[in-house]
Nucleic acid binder design. Structure first.
Length: 470
DNA sequence: TGGGGTTAT
DNA sequence: ATAACCC
Protein backbone atom coordinates (compact mmCIF):
# COMPACT_ATOMS: atom_id res chain seq x y z
CA UNK A 1 0.00 0.00 0.00
CA UNK A 2 1.33 3.38 -0.97
CA UNK A 3 0.92 6.69 0.70
CA UNK A 4 -0.80 8.99 -1.73
CA UNK A 5 0.79 12.03 -0.22
CA UNK A 6 3.23 14.30 -1.97
CA UNK A 7 5.16 15.17 1.17
CA UNK A 8 8.72 13.94 1.38
CA UNK A 9 9.09 11.27 4.01
CA UNK A 10 12.47 12.18 5.45
CA UNK A 11 13.41 15.30 7.40
CA UNK A 12 12.14 17.59 4.68
CA UNK A 13 13.79 20.96 5.13
CA UNK A 14 11.24 23.19 3.56
CA UNK A 15 7.90 21.75 2.73
CA UNK A 16 5.50 24.54 1.84
CA UNK A 17 3.61 25.18 5.07
CA UNK A 18 0.02 24.22 4.37
CA UNK A 19 -2.80 25.55 6.48
CA UNK A 20 -3.30 23.56 9.66
CA UNK A 21 -6.97 23.90 9.93
CA UNK A 22 -8.71 26.53 7.93
CA UNK A 23 -7.01 29.68 6.60
CA UNK A 24 -3.53 30.16 5.28
CA UNK A 25 -0.79 31.08 7.69
CA UNK A 26 0.15 34.75 7.45
CA UNK A 27 3.72 34.32 8.61
CA UNK A 28 5.62 31.19 9.56
CA UNK A 29 8.13 32.40 12.11
CA UNK A 30 11.07 30.22 12.94
CA UNK A 31 10.92 28.87 16.50
CA UNK A 32 13.36 29.64 19.27
CA UNK A 33 14.69 26.72 21.27
CA UNK A 34 17.18 27.53 24.00
CA UNK A 35 18.17 30.78 22.31
CA UNK A 36 18.77 29.05 19.00
CA UNK A 37 16.92 29.38 15.77
CA UNK A 38 15.39 26.15 14.64
CA UNK A 39 13.68 25.63 11.33
CA UNK A 40 9.91 25.70 11.57
CA UNK A 41 8.70 22.14 11.09
CA UNK A 42 6.06 22.99 8.52
CA UNK A 43 3.83 23.31 11.50
CA UNK A 44 0.94 21.20 10.33
CA UNK A 45 2.95 18.01 10.05
CA UNK A 46 4.12 17.86 13.65
CA UNK A 47 2.92 15.22 16.08
CA UNK A 48 2.46 16.57 19.60
CA UNK A 49 1.20 14.81 22.70
CA UNK A 50 -0.19 16.55 25.74
CA UNK A 51 -0.02 14.42 28.88
CA UNK A 52 -2.25 15.47 31.75
CA UNK A 53 -2.21 13.61 35.07
CA UNK A 54 -5.52 12.88 36.78
CA UNK A 55 -6.04 14.94 39.97
CA UNK A 56 -2.31 14.93 40.53
CA UNK A 57 -1.96 16.02 44.16
CA UNK A 58 -4.69 13.57 45.22
CA UNK A 59 -2.92 10.76 43.38
CA UNK A 60 0.37 11.54 45.13
CA UNK A 61 -1.42 11.54 48.49
CA UNK A 62 -3.03 8.17 47.75
CA UNK A 63 0.38 6.74 46.94
CA UNK A 64 1.75 8.12 50.22
CA UNK A 65 -1.30 6.90 52.16
CA UNK A 66 -2.67 3.76 50.45
CA UNK A 67 -5.37 3.42 53.13
CA UNK A 68 -7.03 6.49 51.57
CA UNK A 69 -7.56 4.75 48.23
CA UNK A 70 -11.21 4.29 47.37
CA UNK A 71 -12.35 6.98 49.80
CA UNK A 72 -13.33 10.54 48.85
CA UNK A 73 -10.16 12.57 49.28
CA UNK A 74 -9.46 16.28 48.97
CA UNK A 75 -6.19 18.18 49.11
CA UNK A 76 -6.44 21.33 51.18
CA UNK A 77 -4.44 24.54 50.99
CA UNK A 78 -5.59 27.13 53.52
CA UNK A 79 -9.40 27.08 53.27
CA UNK A 80 -9.56 25.70 49.75
CA UNK A 81 -9.87 22.17 48.42
CA UNK A 82 -7.45 22.63 45.53
CA UNK A 83 -8.06 19.21 44.04
CA UNK A 84 -9.76 15.95 44.89
CA UNK A 85 -9.99 12.38 43.65
CA UNK A 86 -12.83 11.06 41.49
CA UNK A 87 -14.62 9.47 44.45
CA UNK A 88 -14.96 12.97 45.92
CA UNK A 89 -16.00 14.43 42.56
CA UNK A 90 -18.83 11.94 42.27
CA UNK A 91 -20.08 13.25 45.62
CA UNK A 92 -20.13 16.84 44.36
CA UNK A 93 -16.73 18.19 45.36
CA UNK A 94 -15.15 20.50 42.78
CA UNK A 95 -11.65 21.80 42.29
CA UNK A 96 -10.93 25.06 44.16
CA UNK A 97 -14.03 24.63 46.29
CA UNK A 98 -14.24 26.24 49.69
CA UNK A 99 -13.55 23.73 52.49
CA UNK A 100 -16.85 24.57 54.17
CA UNK A 101 -18.87 24.08 50.98
CA UNK A 102 -17.02 20.84 50.29
CA UNK A 103 -17.66 19.43 53.78
CA UNK A 104 -21.29 20.46 53.48
CA UNK A 105 -21.67 18.71 50.13
CA UNK A 106 -19.69 15.72 51.25
CA UNK A 107 -19.41 15.19 55.02
CA UNK A 108 -17.35 12.00 54.58
CA UNK A 109 -14.69 13.93 52.64
CA UNK A 110 -11.20 13.26 53.96
CA UNK A 111 -8.88 16.24 53.73
CA UNK A 112 -5.10 16.21 53.70
CA UNK A 113 -2.99 19.35 53.80
CA UNK A 114 -1.20 20.07 50.55
CA UNK A 115 0.51 23.37 51.31
CA UNK A 116 3.96 21.78 51.21
CA UNK A 117 4.55 21.02 47.55
CA UNK A 118 7.80 19.06 48.01
CA UNK A 119 6.47 15.58 47.26
CA UNK A 120 4.29 16.85 44.40
CA UNK A 121 7.22 18.66 42.86
CA UNK A 122 9.45 15.60 43.14
CA UNK A 123 6.87 13.32 41.55
CA UNK A 124 6.21 15.93 38.89
CA UNK A 125 9.84 15.91 37.79
CA UNK A 126 9.88 12.10 37.79
CA UNK A 127 7.07 12.23 35.26
CA UNK A 128 8.90 14.76 33.10
CA UNK A 129 12.08 12.69 33.24
CA UNK A 130 10.19 9.56 32.25
CA UNK A 131 8.73 11.38 29.24
CA UNK A 132 12.15 12.73 28.32
CA UNK A 133 13.27 9.12 27.76
CA UNK A 134 10.84 8.95 24.84
CA UNK A 135 11.93 12.26 23.34
CA UNK A 136 14.08 14.99 24.88
CA UNK A 137 11.66 17.69 23.72
CA UNK A 138 9.41 17.91 26.78
CA UNK A 139 7.75 21.10 27.98
CA UNK A 140 6.24 21.29 31.43
CA UNK A 141 3.05 23.19 32.11
CA UNK A 142 2.51 23.43 35.82
CA UNK A 143 3.25 20.32 37.88
CA UNK A 144 0.84 17.95 36.20
CA UNK A 145 1.01 18.58 32.44
CA UNK A 146 3.66 17.99 29.81
CA UNK A 147 3.89 18.47 26.06
CA UNK A 148 6.14 16.18 24.06
CA UNK A 149 7.10 16.68 20.41
CA UNK A 150 6.88 13.20 18.89
CA UNK A 151 7.51 14.23 15.29
CA UNK A 152 10.92 12.60 14.98
CA UNK A 153 10.03 9.44 16.88
CA UNK A 154 6.93 8.92 14.79
CA UNK A 155 8.80 9.49 11.53
CA UNK A 156 11.38 6.89 12.53
CA UNK A 157 8.72 4.34 13.41
CA UNK A 158 6.91 4.90 10.13
CA UNK A 159 10.12 4.41 8.20
CA UNK A 160 10.60 1.02 9.89
CA UNK A 161 7.30 -0.16 8.47
CA UNK A 162 6.97 -1.85 5.10
CA UNK A 163 4.38 -0.19 2.93
CA UNK A 164 2.14 -3.26 3.17
CA UNK A 165 2.16 -2.97 6.97
CA UNK A 166 0.63 0.50 6.94
CA UNK A 167 -2.93 -0.75 6.73
CA UNK A 168 -2.29 -2.78 9.88
CA UNK A 169 -1.41 0.27 11.98
CA UNK A 170 -4.02 0.75 14.68
CA UNK A 171 -5.06 3.64 16.85
CA UNK A 172 -4.59 3.46 20.58
CA UNK A 173 -7.47 4.99 22.51
CA UNK A 174 -10.23 7.21 21.15
CA UNK A 175 -10.38 9.06 17.85
CA UNK A 176 -12.04 12.44 18.30
CA UNK A 177 -15.51 12.50 16.72
CA UNK A 178 -15.07 8.84 15.82
CA UNK A 179 -13.65 10.12 12.58
CA UNK A 180 -12.72 7.29 10.18
CA UNK A 181 -9.01 6.80 9.58
CA UNK A 182 -7.69 7.09 6.05
CA UNK A 183 -4.72 4.74 5.78
CA UNK A 184 -3.52 6.53 2.66
CA UNK A 185 -3.23 9.84 4.49
CA UNK A 186 0.28 10.40 5.84
CA UNK A 187 -0.82 12.69 8.61
CA UNK A 188 -3.40 10.18 9.79
CA UNK A 189 -0.71 7.52 9.97
CA UNK A 190 1.60 9.83 11.90
CA UNK A 191 -1.10 10.63 14.41
CA UNK A 192 -1.98 6.94 14.85
CA UNK A 193 1.64 6.13 15.60
CA UNK A 194 1.60 9.12 17.95
CA UNK A 195 -1.35 7.59 19.76
CA UNK A 196 0.64 4.38 20.18
CA UNK A 197 3.54 6.28 21.70
CA UNK A 198 1.12 8.11 23.98
CA UNK A 199 -0.24 4.78 25.19
CA UNK A 200 3.29 3.59 25.89
CA UNK A 201 3.95 6.75 27.87
CA UNK A 202 0.85 6.25 29.99
CA UNK A 203 1.76 2.61 30.55
CA UNK A 204 5.25 3.59 31.68
CA UNK A 205 3.86 6.24 34.03
CA UNK A 206 1.58 3.64 35.54
CA UNK A 207 4.13 0.83 35.79
CA UNK A 208 7.06 2.91 36.99
CA UNK A 209 5.38 5.64 39.02
CA UNK A 210 1.90 4.32 39.77
CA UNK A 211 0.24 7.33 38.15
CA UNK A 212 -2.69 7.58 35.76
CA UNK A 213 -3.43 10.36 33.33
CA UNK A 214 -4.91 11.46 30.04
CA UNK A 215 -3.18 12.14 26.75
CA UNK A 216 -4.14 14.04 23.63
CA UNK A 217 -2.37 13.65 20.30
CA UNK A 218 -2.66 16.28 17.57
CA UNK A 219 -0.67 18.39 15.14
CA UNK A 220 0.08 21.27 17.54
CA UNK A 221 0.13 22.12 21.24
CA UNK A 222 -3.22 23.90 21.31
CA UNK A 223 -5.10 21.03 19.71
CA UNK A 224 -3.23 18.37 21.70
CA UNK A 225 -4.16 20.12 24.90
CA UNK A 226 -7.79 20.59 23.96
CA UNK A 227 -8.22 17.01 22.80
CA UNK A 228 -6.52 15.46 25.84
CA UNK A 229 -9.46 16.49 27.97
CA UNK A 230 -12.18 14.94 25.85
CA UNK A 231 -12.28 11.54 27.56
CA UNK A 232 -11.54 12.11 31.15
CA UNK A 233 -10.00 10.08 33.63
CA UNK A 234 -7.17 7.87 32.46
CA UNK A 235 -7.98 7.82 28.72
CA UNK A 236 -6.49 9.23 25.56
CA UNK A 237 -7.75 10.81 22.36
CA UNK A 238 -6.24 11.58 19.01
CA UNK A 239 -7.44 14.42 16.80
CA UNK A 240 -7.37 13.92 13.02
CA UNK A 241 -7.04 17.21 11.12
CA UNK A 242 -10.50 17.05 9.53
CA UNK A 243 -12.13 17.30 12.97
CA UNK A 244 -10.17 20.35 14.08
CA UNK A 245 -13.06 22.77 13.54
CA UNK A 246 -15.42 20.57 15.50
CA UNK A 247 -13.02 20.49 18.43
CA UNK A 248 -12.55 24.24 18.67
CA UNK A 249 -16.23 24.86 18.08
CA UNK A 250 -16.98 22.59 21.02
CA UNK A 251 -15.67 25.34 23.29
CA UNK A 252 -18.52 27.29 24.83
CA UNK A 253 -16.56 30.47 25.44
CA UNK A 254 -13.27 32.03 24.33
CA UNK A 255 -12.01 31.94 27.93
CA UNK A 256 -11.75 28.16 27.49
CA UNK A 257 -9.13 28.67 24.79
CA UNK A 258 -5.69 28.09 26.32
CA UNK A 259 -3.80 31.34 25.86
CA UNK A 260 -6.84 33.55 26.33
CA UNK A 261 -6.84 34.41 29.99
CA UNK A 262 -9.07 36.40 32.30
CA UNK A 263 -8.00 39.86 31.15
CA UNK A 264 -8.10 39.20 27.42
CA UNK A 265 -11.46 37.44 27.71
CA UNK A 266 -12.91 40.48 29.47
CA UNK A 267 -11.61 42.84 26.80
CA UNK A 268 -12.98 40.60 24.07
CA UNK A 269 -16.39 40.51 25.75
CA UNK A 270 -16.54 44.29 25.56
CA UNK A 271 -16.07 43.94 21.80
CA UNK A 272 -18.97 41.52 21.67
CA UNK A 273 -16.73 38.51 21.17
CA UNK A 274 -17.96 35.55 23.20
CA UNK A 275 -17.61 32.43 21.10
CA UNK A 276 -14.70 31.04 19.17
CA UNK A 277 -16.64 31.75 15.98
CA UNK A 278 -17.05 35.38 17.02
CA UNK A 279 -13.29 35.64 17.32
CA UNK A 280 -12.69 33.87 13.99
CA UNK A 281 -14.85 36.29 12.08
CA UNK A 282 -13.94 39.48 13.93
CA UNK A 283 -12.15 42.25 12.01
CA UNK A 284 -8.43 41.80 12.48
CA UNK A 285 -7.86 45.56 12.11
CA UNK A 286 -10.09 46.36 15.06
CA UNK A 287 -8.72 43.46 17.09
CA UNK A 288 -5.20 44.74 16.47
CA UNK A 289 -6.17 48.26 17.47
CA UNK A 290 -7.67 46.96 20.72
CA UNK A 291 -5.07 44.39 21.80
CA UNK A 292 -1.92 45.17 19.85
CA UNK A 293 -0.65 43.22 16.89
CA UNK A 294 1.07 40.53 18.92
CA UNK A 295 -1.90 39.40 21.01
CA UNK A 296 -4.37 39.99 18.19
CA UNK A 297 -2.47 37.83 15.75
CA UNK A 298 -1.80 35.09 18.26
CA UNK A 299 -5.33 34.73 19.56
CA UNK A 300 -7.05 34.99 16.20
CA UNK A 301 -4.85 32.16 14.97
CA UNK A 302 -5.74 30.19 18.09
CA UNK A 303 -9.40 30.62 17.21
CA UNK A 304 -8.77 28.69 13.97
CA UNK A 305 -6.89 25.98 15.83
CA UNK A 306 -3.55 27.27 14.59
CA UNK A 307 -0.62 27.31 16.96
CA UNK A 308 2.90 27.29 15.62
CA UNK A 309 4.56 27.65 19.02
CA UNK A 310 7.24 25.00 19.40
CA UNK A 311 7.44 22.56 22.28
CA UNK A 312 10.15 24.26 24.30
CA UNK A 313 12.24 21.84 26.36
CA UNK A 314 11.78 23.08 29.93
CA UNK A 315 15.00 21.69 31.35
CA UNK A 316 15.70 22.51 34.98
CA UNK A 317 13.60 25.27 36.58
CA UNK A 318 14.41 28.94 35.98
CA UNK A 319 13.44 29.89 39.51
CA UNK A 320 12.61 28.49 42.93
CA UNK A 321 10.10 30.16 45.16
CA UNK A 322 8.21 29.54 48.37
CA UNK A 323 5.19 31.52 49.42
CA UNK A 324 2.75 31.70 52.29
CA UNK A 325 -0.56 33.47 52.43
CA UNK A 326 -2.38 34.50 55.58
CA UNK A 327 -5.16 36.68 56.89
CA UNK A 328 -2.94 39.38 58.32
CA UNK A 329 0.68 40.27 58.89
CA UNK A 330 1.16 43.78 60.24
CA UNK A 331 4.50 43.91 62.02
CA UNK A 332 8.08 43.72 60.89
CA UNK A 333 9.00 41.01 63.43
CA UNK A 334 6.15 38.85 62.26
CA UNK A 335 7.20 39.35 58.64
CA UNK A 336 10.79 38.49 59.48
CA UNK A 337 9.76 35.19 61.06
CA UNK A 338 7.76 34.18 58.02
CA UNK A 339 10.54 35.23 55.67
CA UNK A 340 13.01 33.12 57.64
CA UNK A 341 10.77 30.07 57.25
CA UNK A 342 10.41 30.57 53.53
CA UNK A 343 14.12 31.12 53.13
CA UNK A 344 15.08 28.02 55.12
CA UNK A 345 13.00 25.81 52.81
CA UNK A 346 14.37 27.52 49.74
CA UNK A 347 17.96 27.03 50.83
CA UNK A 348 17.34 23.29 51.09
CA UNK A 349 15.91 23.19 47.61
CA UNK A 350 18.59 25.28 45.99
CA UNK A 351 21.24 23.18 47.69
CA UNK A 352 19.77 20.03 46.09
CA UNK A 353 19.69 21.58 42.65
CA UNK A 354 23.40 22.18 42.38
CA UNK A 355 23.13 25.43 40.46
CA UNK A 356 23.36 28.72 42.32
CA UNK A 357 20.96 31.62 42.23
CA UNK A 358 22.41 35.06 41.55
CA UNK A 359 19.27 37.05 42.28
CA UNK A 360 16.87 37.07 45.20
CA UNK A 361 13.37 38.54 45.20
CA UNK A 362 10.83 39.34 47.87
CA UNK A 363 7.16 39.50 46.94
CA UNK A 364 4.28 40.87 48.99
CA UNK A 365 0.55 41.19 48.58
CA UNK A 366 -1.09 44.06 50.46
CA UNK A 367 -4.57 43.75 51.85
CA UNK A 368 -7.19 45.57 49.84
CA UNK A 369 -10.91 45.14 50.46
CA UNK A 370 -12.25 44.56 46.97
CA UNK A 371 -9.38 44.86 44.61
CA UNK A 372 -8.32 41.64 42.98
CA UNK A 373 -4.80 40.41 43.14
CA UNK A 374 -1.90 42.76 43.06
CA UNK A 375 1.61 41.87 44.07
CA UNK A 376 4.66 44.02 44.50
CA UNK A 377 8.24 42.84 44.43
CA UNK A 378 11.81 43.99 44.93
CA UNK A 379 14.84 42.05 43.82
CA UNK A 380 18.58 42.45 44.05
CA UNK A 381 21.73 40.55 43.19
CA UNK A 382 23.00 38.11 45.77
CA UNK A 383 26.48 39.26 46.85
CA UNK A 384 29.11 36.91 45.45
CA UNK A 385 30.54 36.02 48.87
CA UNK A 386 27.07 34.81 49.89
CA UNK A 387 26.63 32.84 46.66
CA UNK A 388 29.86 30.99 47.31
CA UNK A 389 28.70 29.87 50.74
CA UNK A 390 25.50 28.47 49.26
CA UNK A 391 26.46 24.89 48.53
CA UNK A 392 28.65 24.47 51.59
CA UNK A 393 26.37 23.62 54.52
CA UNK A 394 28.92 24.83 57.06
CA UNK A 395 28.66 28.55 56.88
CA UNK A 396 25.68 30.58 57.96
CA UNK A 397 24.04 31.84 54.85
CA UNK A 398 20.72 32.57 56.56
CA UNK A 399 21.89 35.71 58.37
CA UNK A 400 23.15 37.68 55.37
CA UNK A 401 20.18 36.53 53.27
CA UNK A 402 17.65 37.57 55.90
CA UNK A 403 19.41 40.94 56.17
CA UNK A 404 19.06 41.44 52.42
CA UNK A 405 15.42 40.34 52.41
CA UNK A 406 14.54 42.70 55.26
CA UNK A 407 16.13 45.55 53.37
CA UNK A 408 14.01 44.67 50.36
CA UNK A 409 11.05 44.48 52.72
CA UNK A 410 11.61 47.96 54.12
CA UNK A 411 12.12 49.25 50.60
CA UNK A 412 8.55 48.21 49.78
CA UNK A 413 6.80 48.62 53.11
CA UNK A 414 7.02 51.76 55.20
CA UNK A 415 7.30 50.06 58.59
CA UNK A 416 6.71 53.34 60.39
CA UNK A 417 3.20 53.36 58.99
CA UNK A 418 0.53 50.74 59.65
CA UNK A 419 0.43 47.98 57.06
CA UNK A 420 -1.54 44.83 56.35
CA UNK A 421 -0.01 42.07 54.23
CA UNK A 422 -1.74 38.88 53.11
CA UNK A 423 1.17 37.14 51.38
CA UNK A 424 4.94 36.86 51.51
CA UNK A 425 7.06 35.06 48.95
CA UNK A 426 10.78 34.60 48.48
CA UNK A 427 12.19 33.70 45.09
CA UNK A 428 15.65 32.62 43.93
CA UNK A 429 16.26 33.19 40.25
CA UNK A 430 18.94 33.88 37.69
CA UNK A 431 20.33 30.39 38.31
CA UNK A 432 23.79 29.66 36.99
CA UNK A 433 25.73 26.45 36.72
CA UNK A 434 28.11 25.69 39.52
CA UNK A 435 31.56 27.17 39.12
CA UNK A 436 34.32 24.80 38.24
CA UNK A 437 37.85 25.89 37.53
CA UNK A 438 36.63 27.41 34.30
CA UNK A 439 34.47 29.89 36.12
CA UNK A 440 37.01 32.64 36.38
CA UNK A 441 37.68 32.50 32.66
CA UNK A 442 34.05 32.34 31.66
CA UNK A 443 33.24 35.23 33.89
CA UNK A 444 36.13 37.20 32.50
CA UNK A 445 34.87 36.84 28.96
CA UNK A 446 31.12 36.74 29.44
CA UNK A 447 30.24 38.94 32.39
CA UNK A 448 29.29 42.37 31.15
CA UNK A 449 30.88 45.23 32.95
CA UNK A 450 28.88 48.39 33.48
CA UNK A 451 30.98 50.20 30.91
CA UNK A 452 30.29 47.54 28.28
CA UNK A 453 26.96 48.55 26.84
CA UNK A 454 27.63 47.08 23.42
CA UNK A 455 26.03 43.66 23.77
CA UNK A 456 23.26 44.09 26.28
CA UNK A 457 20.82 41.79 24.56
CA UNK A 458 20.40 39.34 27.42
CA UNK A 459 17.51 39.68 29.77
CA UNK A 460 19.61 39.29 32.86
CA UNK A 461 21.37 42.51 31.96
CA UNK A 462 18.12 44.40 31.69
CA UNK A 463 16.88 43.44 35.16
CA UNK A 464 16.44 46.45 37.32
CA UNK A 465 17.74 45.43 40.71
CA UNK A 466 17.07 47.61 43.66
CA UNK A 467 20.26 48.74 45.25
CA UNK A 468 20.79 47.61 48.81
CA UNK A 469 23.33 49.51 50.87
CA UNK A 470 25.44 47.55 53.31
C1' DT B 1 -8.96 31.29 45.57
C1' DG B 2 -3.37 28.30 46.71
C1' DG B 3 1.30 27.68 45.92
C1' DG B 4 3.52 27.40 42.60
C1' DG B 5 5.58 28.34 37.56
C1' DT B 6 6.66 30.95 32.54
C1' DT B 7 7.31 34.76 29.04
C1' DA B 8 6.63 39.55 27.31
C1' DT B 9 6.84 44.40 27.96
C1' DA C 1 9.03 45.69 38.13
C1' DT C 2 4.89 44.50 36.51
C1' DA C 3 1.45 42.22 33.85
C1' DA C 4 -0.17 38.64 31.44
C1' DC C 5 -0.52 33.66 30.91
C1' DC C 6 -0.55 28.43 32.67
C1' DC C 7 -1.59 24.70 36.30
Amino acid sequence: MELADAEAAGPSPEAPAPAECAPAEPGGLPGLVHDQLVPTQSSSSRVIVHVDLDCFYAQVEMISHPELKGKPLGVQQKYLVVTCNYEARELGVKKLMNVRDAKEKCPQLILVNGEDLTRYREMSYKVTELLEEFSPIVERLGFDENFVDLTEMVEKRLQQLQSNELSAVTVSGHVYNNQPVNFHNVMHMRLLVGSQVAAEMREAMHNQLGLTGCAGVASNKLLAKLVSGVFKPNQQTVLLPESCQDLINSLNHIKEMPGIGYKTAKRLEVLGINSVRDLQSFSFKILEKELGISVAQRIQKLSFGEDNSPVMPSGPPQSFSEEDSFKKCSSEVEAKKKIEELLASLLNRVCQDGRRPHTIRLVIRRYSPEKHYSRESRQCPIPSHVIQKLGTGNYDVMTPMVDILMKLFRNMVNVKMPFHLTLLSVCFCNLKAQNTAKKGLIDYYLTPSLSTTSHSGKRSFKMKDTHIED
